[in-house]
Write a protein that binds this DNA or RNA. Sequence first.
DNA 1: CTAAAACTTAACCACAAAGTTAACTATCGG
DNA 2: CCGATAGTTAACTTTGTGGTTAAGTTTTAG
Lengths: 124, 124
Amino acid sequence: MQGADADDLDGVLAALANRHRRAIVYQLGLQPYSIAHLAKMRGLSLPAIHKHIAVLENANMILRRKTGRTNYLILNRESLHELQEWITQFTPGWGSDEQTLENYVAFLDGNSNQNSENETEEKG
Amino acid sequence: MQGADADDLDGVLAALANRHRRAIVYQLGLQPYSIAHLAKMRGLSLPAIHKHIAVLENANMILRRKTGRTNYLILNRESLHELQEWITQFTPGWGSDEQTLENYVAFLDGNSNQNSENETEEKG
DNA sequence: CTAAAACTTAACCACAAAGTTAACTATCGG
DNA sequence: CCGATAGTTAACTTTGTGGTTAAGTTTTAG
């Protein structure tokens, strides 16, 4: 089932593709803050920060606890787990992509050319 | 130096915050493909795919090798390394955010209330 | 009761993102 | 040389994002 996961990833990545929201995520990873407090920290108006919070909540990235009139937020670390895993899937081959590309093109050349020598100046 | 890293992260996350580009990244993580090939795979026009490729290249996420008239692309796995590290910084406390938030609010209550008892049904 | 704090909501605006069509360059196959 | 393939570029449209101001609700403080 890649559908639901893909949806989740979409929300999380869209949420993280913004400096303010990344900063908020970072802060809420350290300790809870109120919305008004975050607004002051980021130099943003309440409506502006409210929208950012909404994006993060829709991505299920923060938890909220209302006490009196103030809302305390904290990071929901679980939401990062899926992204973590998605990235990890690329890790096995860590590095060497340049050479892979070179080899692939050389291989294609070989098929119509029977010549796997390098034509570049790379290998004096 | 958080500045350059933050810029890189911004580019990578913005690039990944799109299904087509994530799919492209995934495919190019398996093997090289031409731009036209990717366009067919995604059911997109050449100009459309070209723009996506441009975004990925600006984020330094893919490598290109032009041979004849076709351009072969592959994933640049290094570009994901930084994001990987950024996410890992949140991992230490994996889980238990809900309780942290509860405790924090209870602590704030205690300061004006001298009462750290739980009002919830959680701890029969 | 009243004023202020902590949000929320709605309406609006400027700008960027993601696609389109059309026209152009460059390379290969015959 | 000629037509087709691969890619780029420009101009345009539509939709989404991120901010604003203004007005509303709920809760606390005096």
